[in-house]
Structure formats: C-alpha cells, structure tokens
Computed example of a mutant assay.
Amino acid sequence: MLENIDYQAIINDILLPWGSKILMALVIFFIGRLVAKGIVRVTEKVLGRSKLDTMIIGFITSILSAVLILIVIIAALEPLGVDTTSLVALIGAAGLAIGLALQDSLKNFAAGFMLILFRPFKEGDFIEAGGATGVAEKVSILTTIMRTVDNREIIVPNGNIFGNNITNFSARDTRRVDMVFGIGYDADLKLAKQLLCEMLENDERVLKDPAYVVAVSELADSSVNFVVRPWVKSSDYWPFFFDMQEQVKLRFDEAGVSIPFPQMDVHIQQ
C-alpha cells in the first residue's frame, strides 16, 4: 500500500510550498523582531536626549514595543495565507472581550497614562501613594515600581496610585520639621526655650526665611511641651530631625533641664 504513495507529489505539492511559506514567516518574524527592537532603542535614545523624564521615556517605549511586536506577528502570518484583514478584526473583537474581562488592567493602563501626562511625581521623588511609601523608580504600562528606604521593591498598580491621594515629599525644595519636646514642671521654662533657640540658630541647615517657631504648646499631664518648627531643605529633613533629637537630650542634660517621663501620683486614704 505504501508503494502506491507518490512521495514526489507530496514533496512538490505540500512540503515545498508550505515549507517555503513557513520559512518566510519565520524570517519575517525574526527580522521584524530585530527591527522592532532597533526602533525601540533608537526611540529611547532620541527621547533620552530631550528633557523628558526617564519614566515617561520608559512608558512610551514599552507601548511602542508592544505595538511593533503585534505588527510583526500579523506580517509573519500573511505568507501562511492568513487573512490579516479578518485577523485584525478578530483581534479587535477579542480585544474588546478581553477588555471587558480585564477592566482592572485597563483601569491601570489608563491610570498609568494619566500619571505620565500629569506627572504628579518623577523618577527619584520620595512619595506616599497607593498604600506604599518609597522612591519612585518607574511607571510601566500597568504598575509603578517603588523602592523603600530599606531597599525593598514595591510594585503598586497604577489605578491604586492615581485613584487615591499622592503625597510627594520631594516636590518642594523646603520642608518644615515639626517636633515636640517636653520639660518637667519644675524645670526652668525660659532656659529651655533659650537652649532650643540657640540650637536652631547655630545649625546652618535651618533656613532664616521662613523663620522658625519655638513656643509652649501644651501644659500636659506630666510635662510642659514645646513645639519646635524650623524650615530646612527637603534633602536635610531626616538628618536634621535625628540630630535634633540627640542634641536636645544632650543640651538639656548639661543645663539640668529635666525631660520627664509619664508618671502618676497615687494618694491612699485610710
């Protein structure tokens, strides 16, 4: 029975035509993918020479890469006899169906576009958004990548960020440091205020304008509380805050100004 098979006809009519079509499709796919990568790299370099933020560049190139790969796939299917016009229509219909099923992903995509458009933060800004706090590193199509102060990576959906409050601690050049220091009721009030003012006057990081504030804010249960509110550069915020905690304790100890701890007097009646 095998002797009746015309192998030459199979080769000529099936293997050679389809083999050449498959080979052509593979060539188009691999060459097209290389060309697409080249276009993305060139676009990235051109945009890099502009004043655009790197997060905007990454967002644009990621979308461009996805579109070009889709075009390459459609072009590679054409030698195989696939009706690309119908395929595009089919992809559109499938995209609509997938879009309805993946509403959250579309929401994140739209939010990513809005973040790039309005730019509430840029790369390197320290922000609080989407329930996370850290340095913004990248806005991709669906997510934003943040790095915490202890070097952990947090990936937050764009929809969670754009749909909620965004606090950008790096947006302004200066920040006010709000601190509260308590002294005992038997301590010298004027001396404590003088020491606090001297520490602020002698610290070069404290800005002259706006002026700092040192005032009694509360007669608390166990202490008399001072509010201390100097202005510093945003980059000096945490170094100044930590130094101030240490310096106040040391200076108050040297001057004999007590810093009380919570306490309660108990009177027992017979």
Results as ranks from 00 to 15, higher is better:
Lys107Phe: 09
Ile268Lys: 04
Ile183Val: 13
Pro260Ala: 04
Ala97Met: 14
Ala255Gln: 10
Met146Thr: 02
Phe162Gly: 02
Ala187His: 00
Thr133Ser: 10
Leu102Asp: 14
Ile63Ala: 11
Gly159Ala: 13
Gly38Val: 01
Gln247Asp: 12
Trp238Phe: 14
Ala89Val: 09
Glu198Gly: 04
Tyr212Leu: 05
Asn151His: 10
Tyr237Cys: 07
Asp243Leu: 01
Ala66Glu: 11
Thr85Pro: 02
Gly19His: 11
Ile5Val: 13
Gly58Thr: 03
Leu87Ala: 03
Val248Ser: 00
Pro157Trp: 07
Ala255Trp: 06
Pro79Cys: 07
Asn164Lys: 15
Thr148Tyr: 12
Asp265Ala: 13
Asp221Tyr: 04
Lys51Leu: 13
Cys197Thr: 14
Gly256Ala: 04
Asn4Val: 11
Asp6Pro: 03
Met24Trp: 09
Lys233Tyr: 15
Ala129Tyr: 01
Val156Thr: 12
Lys51Gly: 11
Ser86Tyr: 12
Thr54Glu: 15
Ser234Trp: 02
Gly112Asp: 09
Ile69Trp: 08
Val72Pro: 05
Ala171Asn: 07
Arg152Ser: 11
Thr61Trp: 03
Tyr185Pro: 06
Met264Val: 15
Tyr212Met: 07
Leu96Lys: 01
Leu117Gly: 00
Ser20Pro: 00
Ile154Lys: 08
Leu23Ile: 03
Leu47Arg: 04
Asp236His: 10
Leu102Gly: 11
Ser50Thr: 15
Leu200Asn: 06
Phe252Leu: 13
Val206Lys: 00
Arg176Glu: 15
Leu115Cys: 08
Ile161Gly: 02
Ala101Ile: 14
Asn165Lys: 14
Lys193Thr: 04
Lys107Pro: 02
Gly48Ser: 10
Ala255Arg: 08
Ala136Gly: 04
Ala89Glu: 08
Val139Asp: 01
Gly134Asp: 08
Asp125Val: 05
Ala111Arg: 01
Ser170Phe: 07
Ile155Val: 15
Val266Ser: 03
Lys190Val: 07
Ile28Val: 15
Gly38Met: 08
Met146Asp: 03
Val135Gly: 01
Glu246Arg: 09
Val227Asp: 12
Val156Ala: 05
Ser20Arg: 13
Gly184Arg: 08
Asp265Val: 14
Ser235Pro: 00
Lys107Ser: 13
Phe169Met: 10
Ala132His: 12
Val40Ile: 13
Met24Glu: 10
Ser217Phe: 06
Ile116Asn: 09
Leu106Arg: 00
Asn164Gln: 15
Gly19Trp: 13
Pro230Gln: 09
Asn151Glu: 08
Val40Arg: 01
Thr167Asn: 13
Val40Gln: 05
Cys197His: 07
Asp83Pro: 06
Pro17Trp: 02
Ala94Asp: 06
Ala25Ser: 15
Leu77Asn: 04
Asn158Met: 09
Leu106His: 03
Leu34Ile: 09
Ala136Ile: 06
Val42Ser: 08
His267Leu: 14
Phe109Thr: 07
Leu219His: 12
Arg251Ala: 13
Ile91Lys: 00
Leu80Thr: 05
Ile91Ser: 05
Arg49Cys: 06
